[in-house]
């Protein structure tokens, strides 16, 4: 009976899937400036979460605390059952669970596309050269870069570089992917190819947390949208409600600004 409900019910994601990321009361300070205050966020396996908000609202900081690129100062973060307590093993374990894609790609400029994708699997997953190469080619094919594997990052367009960055993260085969404004540094004509790769990933059931301003992507892909302002989560809702019936004035004002 419950299975039937899940399939026909209005909220398929509400089924109690295992929790992938759980943040409780997370705080972060930069000196005296409070960058995150009382962040509570639960992301279940397979969910796609979009985080948006004005610049300086703490959305990048939030996503960066999840894999501890920024250590948090209060509250708890649990990723796939691992509590981020700052010990080197917990940090390492959490980073193996999370792939990350940056706004500025951060590819290694002195390595070829293929080497960029092979480096981390060889170093941290101790794969052999052949295994790592096969893995890298598989994911480079998946982001449609299979033909350019021996070029250097600087020889590719921004959109291609960002797709390589996605493939590089996927090569670690993480169950969770974090995207920190993946299309913000791209020329408009390249945004689509990157979003397409992200949508393909979403269809395959990847757990995704994306900081992005791409509202079309949010509508199509996100299960839930989170709106942040001044370091706190102001509103959190399913994508349709988020865009059609925003509750808070701050979100209404923000949507009016960006949906034109």
């Amino acid at each position: 009976m419950s299975a039937l409900q899940t399939e026909t019910g209005p909220q398929p994601v509400a089924a109690p899937r295992p929790i992938a990321v759980e943040m409780t009361g997370v705080e972060k300070y930069y000196g005296k400036f409070k960058a995150l205050s009382g962040i509570d966020l639960t992301v279940r396996k397979g969910e796609k979460i979009v985080i948006c908000g004005p610049s300086g609202s703490g959305k990048s900081t939030l996503i960066r605390t999840i894999n501890r690129l920024e250590p948090h100062d209060g509250g708890t973060i649990v990723v796939n059952g691992i509590t981020l307590d700052g010990s080197p093993t917990s940090v390492q374990d959490v980073r193996l669970e999370c792939g990350m894609v940056f706004q500025q790609f951060n590819l290694f400029p002195h390595l070829t596309i293929l080497e960029n994708c092979m480096l981390a699997p060889r170093l941290t997953r101790k794969l052999s050269k052949t295994q790592a190469e096969a893995l890298a080619l598989k994911y480079l094919e998946r982001v449609h870069i299979g033909a350019q594997t021996h070029k250097y990052p600087s020889q590719l367009s921004g959109g291609q570089q960002q797709r390589v960055a996605i493939a590089r993260a996927l090569c670690m085969e993480p169950p969770i992917m974090l995207f920190d404004e993946p299309t913000s540094a791209l020329d408009p004509e390249m945004i689509k190819e990157v979003l397409q790769v992200m949508e393909d990933l979403a269809e395959d059931g990847m757990t995704m947390i994306c900081v992005t301003h791409e509202m079309g992507f949010a509508r199509r892909v996100a299960n839930r949208c989170v709106f942040m302002d001044q370091g706190e989560i102001v509103e959190e809702a399913r994508a349709e409600e988020f865009f059609e019936a925003p509750k808070s004035d701050r979100l209404k004002a923000f949507l009016a600004q960006i949906l034109h």
């Binding site: 390492q92 193996l96 999370c98 940056f102 790609f105 951060n106 290694f108 170093l123 993260a169």
Partner: peptide
Amino acid sequence: LPKGQFEACSALAIGPVAAWRHV
């Protein structure tokens, strides 16, 4: 060196010694 190079290594769980050596 862009800070992102260090962050990319961290995010990929590459340890500090290997990150220095290879990146």
